[in-house]
Computed example of a mutant assay.
Amino acid sequence: MSSLASRIDADVLRKLAPKVSGKQAASQTAVITGFGAMLPKMLPYVGVITPLRIQHFLAQTAHESDGFSTSEEYASGAAYEGRKDLGNTEAGDGKRFKGRGPIQLTGRSNYRQFTAWMRSMQPDCPDFERKPELVAQWPWAGWAAAFFWNTRNINKLADDDNLVAITKVINGGRNGLEDRARYLSKAKAVVMPLAALDVPADDEFPVLRRGSQGEWVDRLQIALAATGFYLLAIDGDFGGGTEGAVKLFQRSRGLLVDGIAGPKTFSALSAYLPETED
């Protein structure tokens, strides 16, 4: 099991989603509890194990589930009636196969394909085409999100940090892009400290990540700028710009692209590092 994936749980989901009140509070608690309990096992099964993949998965599911407040689309599903591209060929299919699960699995075809995919792992699972309402229940809701992510090869887009492309696959366009971007920014802030726990420091170099500050961040920014490829403010604050530059540098050197500056990244930058101040 991925060490990072094992740390993605209900507590992480609570940090991502603003707490709701009123009638939705109980629903949000149920979604966060059910989904959070599944993630440590489910994420590695579909290869969502790197910081970027986890961050994008969390951002998309947070948006699609209205901040983890529902496992079923609020609309009736009538808008999908007659959608042959979704396999909705029988009267009532729009409402019957409305969006369910944290990525809002929609349409008869997807429910049929989800059943086949799930049965390759668990042969005795329900037939979701016959009982579509079960896709809103745990654990099936979570596995429906995993099925969609896996069968659409979204990990590859996450590796490129391509929010626009991922949103297009999930939603068909740019709907909710601003909200998805906010969730992604928050997911990066929440996940990076957890990811940094897997990067060992040594006696020569520290481990820096988004949110780090101080002289070592100054030195990192100066070194990245000195390579000639990155325009960075030297401000001692490891923000999104510095993280992006670290990722680009890591990719150019064949290192693990995680945006965390640890000993391997510093060693690759050693020729550009300024001396420490006395």
Results as ranks from 00 to 15, higher is better:
residue 198 D to S: 14
residue 276 T to P: 08
residue 85 D to L: 04
residue 125 C to L: 10
residue 207 V to S: 02
residue 64 E to Q: 14
residue 123 P to G: 07
residue 243 E to S: 11
residue 211 G to T: 07
residue 69 S to Y: 08
residue 228 G to R: 11
residue 15 K to N: 10
residue 229 F to A: 15
residue 225 A to L: 03
residue 270 S to G: 01
residue 132 P to S: 01
residue 79 A to R: 15
residue 229 F to K: 13
residue 214 G to N: 07
residue 232 L to V: 14
residue 59 A to R: 03
residue 145 A to K: 00
residue 257 V to M: 08
residue 29 T to E: 14
residue 34 G to S: 14
residue 164 V to I: 12
residue 266 F to Q: 01
residue 259 G to S: 00
residue 265 T to N: 12
residue 215 E to P: 03
residue 63 H to N: 11
residue 57 F to P: 02
residue 76 S to A: 12
residue 120 S to L: 06
residue 213 Q to T: 15
residue 258 D to E: 08
residue 230 Y to V: 09
residue 52 L to N: 03
residue 101 G to D: 11
residue 226 A to C: 01
residue 265 T to S: 10
residue 271 A to H: 11
residue 152 R to C: 08
residue 254 G to V: 04
residue 77 G to P: 05
residue 222 I to C: 02
residue 89 T to D: 09
residue 218 D to L: 03
residue 81 E to W: 05
residue 90 E to D: 12
residue 221 Q to W: 11
residue 119 R to K: 15
residue 269 L to A: 02
residue 20 V to A: 08
residue 33 T to P: 03
residue 181 A to Q: 09
residue 175 N to Q: 09
residue 11 D to Y: 02
residue 104 Q to T: 13
residue 48 V to F: 06
residue 66 D to S: 15
residue 258 D to T: 07
residue 129 E to H: 10
residue 273 L to S: 13
residue 87 G to S: 09
residue 44 P to Y: 11
residue 123 P to S: 12
residue 113 Q to P: 06
residue 188 K to T: 12
residue 107 G to Y: 07
residue 64 E to H: 04
